[in-house]
Simulated scan of single mutants.
Amino acid sequence: MKLISSLLLILLLVTVSSSIAFAKEIKYNHNSITIAEVKEVVNFKVLVPKKVPEELALEIKTRDNKDGNLSSIRLHYMDENDENLMLGIEEKKVSKRVISQLEEEFSEGEKIKVNVVSAYYQEWANRGKELNGKIITGGLLTWIEDETYVQMDSSSLSKDEMVEIARTFR
């Protein structure tokens, strides 16, 4: 009985420690507003990727509408030197009547399943060319989820990397 209790205790400790290891704290830069603070003041569901490259730091930009309310946010994931934007994500609320118009605009891109919704990917027109010593990759990945318009953009990450990140949004 003592052996079984010891094994159960060890199993519990391993389970708890492994779940703690998977919880990653978001690194913010420039004393940015936090995700929690943004969620308190917007009128749409804020979607956040749970998996981004570990070395990236997040800075959140906000935009007010003419009423002074927060109308959209932009998540900037910067490189480890805080010099290059590696991934940008814009989010804002869209009404149901605007959704069909936007989806029609998206349809020019490649349709990709992101969780339970369809997303549309368009690569940059200058993809493969060099800019500031780096080859341009990536493009735009756009979708609407729970009346939240999401547009990811990157000239550093590949389409596959962007889609992998998009599938971790919660």
Rank of each mutant, 00 (worst) to 15 (best):
E25P: 00
D153Y: 11
E108H: 04
K92D: 08
R74N: 06
L70T: 02
G138Q: 02
I99L: 10
R170E: 15
V114G: 08
K111E: 11
V41R: 07
E90D: 05
G133C: 13
V52Q: 01
V14H: 15
L102M: 12
V52C: 04
L131Q: 12
L9A: 15
M78E: 08
Q151D: 10
R167L: 04
I35D: 00
E55L: 13
I89H: 10
A57H: 04
Y28F: 15
G133Y: 15
V114C: 14
E123C: 04
L70R: 05
L3Y: 14
S17A: 07
A119T: 02
V48L: 00
I165R: 12
L3F: 14
A57G: 12
S32V: 05
I73W: 01
L87R: 14
G68T: 09
S19G: 11
R97M: 09
K159L: 09
S100L: 04
L131E: 15
E104S: 08
L13A: 15
G138L: 06
H30D: 09
G109T: 06
R167T: 06
K159I: 04
E123I: 05
L102G: 04
F106A: 03
V38R: 00
D153G: 09
G109M: 08
K92T: 07
Y28H: 02
S100M: 01
V48W: 00
K45Y: 01
E123Y: 04
M86P: 11
D146L: 04
M152H: 07
G68H: 06
S18C: 09
H76V: 02
E103H: 03
V163A: 14
M162D: 10
N69T: 11
V116K: 14
S95M: 06
S107Y: 10
S71G: 03
S154Q: 02
K111N: 11
E54I: 07
A21E: 13
K111L: 07
F44I: 10
L141F: 08
Q122L: 01
N84Y: 15
S72G: 02
E103F: 02
L131G: 09
K61H: 02
L58V: 03
E90G: 06
L8A: 12
V163H: 10
N115T: 10
T137Y: 12
